[in-house]
Simulated scan of single mutants.
Amino acid sequence: MADQEGGRLLTHTIKDVAKLAGVAPSTVSRVIADSPKISAKTKARVKAVMAELGYHPNVHARNLVNKQTNVIGVIMPSVSYAPFQNPFFPEVLRGITAQANEDKYGLYLSTGQLESDIIEEVKEMVHSRRVDGMILLYSTTADPVIPFLLEENFPFVVIGRPPEQLEGVVSYVNNDNVKAAKMLTEYLLLLKHQRIGFIGGRKDAYVTLDHREGYCEALTSAGLEINEGDLVYHDEVFEGGEQAVIELMAQVTPPTAIIVADDLMALGVLRMLSSMGYQVPKDISVVSFNNVLMSELASPPLTTMDIQIYELGFKSAELLRKRIANPDLPMQAVKVGHRLVRRETSQAIERQ
């Protein structure tokens, strides 16, 4: 702690640390910055003096000199899409935070109520240099954030994929969502299901478009027609799953299996099916994406595609850190794997 003299709190300076440690003030600064030019012995001595005096470096002031904030901006979907209701976002933030902490970066979360608010907030963050770089937690077809950041030449990474015309221009971390959706559909086909419903998320999201592509590829390869009535789209929330399954099951010939874009939506699907008198998986199979904790705790436990959400966050922060340190690095596309986790909501169809 800082010393007291006559009831007055004394705040120690870098010069006090240098004097007591027997080094130059510049050496103390290099120790604070963890410079490799300073020996481990000197670092230990200076840090011991800092602890003895209760000295804490003014990181904010040092960052102003270095023109850095040591803060990463994390751009969430608009509040209208209820991102914090969905366990995907806390888990991806956990991965981002784990990597950011390694380099002592803080996070600044966007708070836009509407999509128009988000772009204005991004502009303010860039122009005020409030953050050193940004991670976008979503990717949609008409979003203005990516074009703006490219125009400003500001470091950023996307979780998801950018538009096709920006491949090689934008760094991003993503799953192979086409392949994952195709695998999930093929799994149901192997269980002898031929009428398979598809519940997608928001229509303008690239992950939804990729899921649809994989689903259609699998059906086409199996020689099955794609019935547009079997494809419905809703926001990735519990209520979205409930509404979507009502639409699917109201058809004259409802599906015997359903692929759901997201585990939270799938919980809504399971509850609505139960209220309709359907038994899962005896009457209908349900499979999903993400493998968040709630999927294992669902009743019955949910068959789902694990997309390694934590790894998506960790890799995105790692990639952004490299871009901040070296803006001239070539753009990178990092793919994170996926695996099918079979539980109790899927089984082979029972033929009459």
Rank of each mutant, 00 (worst) to 15 (best):
V292I: 06
P254K: 07
T256M: 02
V287A: 15
S288V: 12
N291R: 10
K282R: 10
N291F: 04
P255I: 00
L264P: 07
I259M: 07
G277K: 14
A266Y: 00
F289L: 15
K282S: 15
R271M: 10
G268Y: 02
I284C: 09
N291H: 11
P254S: 08
T253E: 14
F289W: 13
L267K: 06
S274N: 11
I284P: 08
N291M: 06
I258A: 00
V286R: 09
L264K: 08
A261F: 10
T256W: 04
A257C: 03
M272K: 14
V252M: 08
I259L: 05
M272D: 12
S288W: 14
M272A: 15
A266N: 02
V280R: 03
I284G: 03
L270N: 02
V280M: 06
N291K: 12
N290T: 13
G268T: 05
Q251N: 14
N290S: 12
Q251F: 08
D283S: 10
G277F: 15
M272V: 15
G277I: 13
M272E: 15
I258C: 00
R271C: 09
N290D: 12
S288N: 14
S275H: 08
V252C: 06
T256E: 07
V269P: 05
V269C: 03
P255S: 01
S275E: 13
D262H: 03
I259H: 00
I284Q: 09
L273P: 03
Y278D: 08
M272Y: 13
